[in-house]
Design a protein around this nucleic acid. Structure first.
Length: 238
DNA sequence: AATAGTCTCAACCGCCATGCA
DNA sequence: TTGCATGGCGGTTGAGACTAT
């Protein structure tokens, strides 16, 4: 027996949302809220849409204070740093960028930022480990390879790791094995609260820490790479 | 101007966690 | 304790826009 569908797919409209549908959804939620039940919402709102689709549309597009368009340099840096630290946890990254959605950030990373970082000579990183979301970060990060950490290592530090296109030096390299506290105010201003938010006990954060020192960006915490720096100018994270 | 190739991003898919009966 | 319904998430897709030839 397969998994029950979340909605009657035959009676549900797919594809791009029309302005009328947008208006209906927005008006309904502004009047009544979501009612804590997205599955029932489309029927109540008179929409022939899947509840998940409504949720996504609201969160990614209709919700107030959504920011669209160009990412700022600061946002770029936050995304780079957090990706280096926690991997593709887009919702967590999005929580650090008010007005940005996880979908937005994910798209931005996949289409622009990643290319900026990797240049054209590097093979893409291996696939993530099977997803372990909703798990405490510290557990995830200490998990067996390929973990986000391993993924990150091979991504940024392994053979073919990306280099500064101008100087040719490794763009992100790492010091010898050592535990570091997640203490970079720049990297993840409230990473510890993120950990707590995921129910993790207070422990040292055994993972990469991205630090900025006088214009250089350094990532700490690998078990195979040495430290060095890159210039901000040549860093694609700028 | 036409066509092919590439890029962007909204939306969908399916998995997993959580809450509740 | 178990099973189901729902929420939330990350990965992927595909249509339309854009660019190159």
């Amino acid at each position: 027996m397969g998994r029950a569908p979340c909605c009657d797919k035959n009676n549900v409209k797919k594809g791009p949302w029309s302005p009328e549908e947008d208006a209906k959804l927005k008006e309904f939620i502004e009047k009544h809220g979501t009612g804590g039940n997205w599955i029932a919402l489309p029927q109540k709102a008179g929409l022939r849409r899947c509840g998940k689709s409504c949720r996504l549309r609201w969160l990614n597009y209709l919700r107030p204070n959504i920011k669209h368009g160009e990412f700022t340099e600061h946002e770029d840096r936050v995304i780079c740093n957090m990706y280096a630290s926690i991997g593709s946890r887009w919702s967590i990254i999005a929580s650090q960028l008010p007005g940005r959605t996880d979908n937005d950030i994910k798209n931005y990373w996949n289409t622009k930022l990643k290319k900026k970082l990797l240049g054209s000579t590097v093979t893409p990183p291996p696939h993530r480990a099977p997803r372990q979301h909703h798990r405490p970060l510290n557990v995830m990060l200490q998990h067996t390879s390929p973990s986000p950490q391993a993924t990150y290592n091979s991504f940024f530090c392994g053979p073919g790791a990306f280099h500064d296109p101008i100087s040719g030096i490794p763009a992100l390299t790492l010091p010898p094995p050592q535990d570091y506290m997640l203490n970079s105010g720049l990297a993840i201003p409230n990473a510890s609260s993120l950990l707590h938010g995921h129910g993790a006990p207070q422990q040292q954060f055994h993972h990469h820490v991205v630090k900025e020192e006088s214009g250089n960006m350094i990532v700490f915490g690998s078990d195979q790479c040495r430290s060095s720096t890159i210039t901000r100018r040549s860093s694609s994270c700028s």
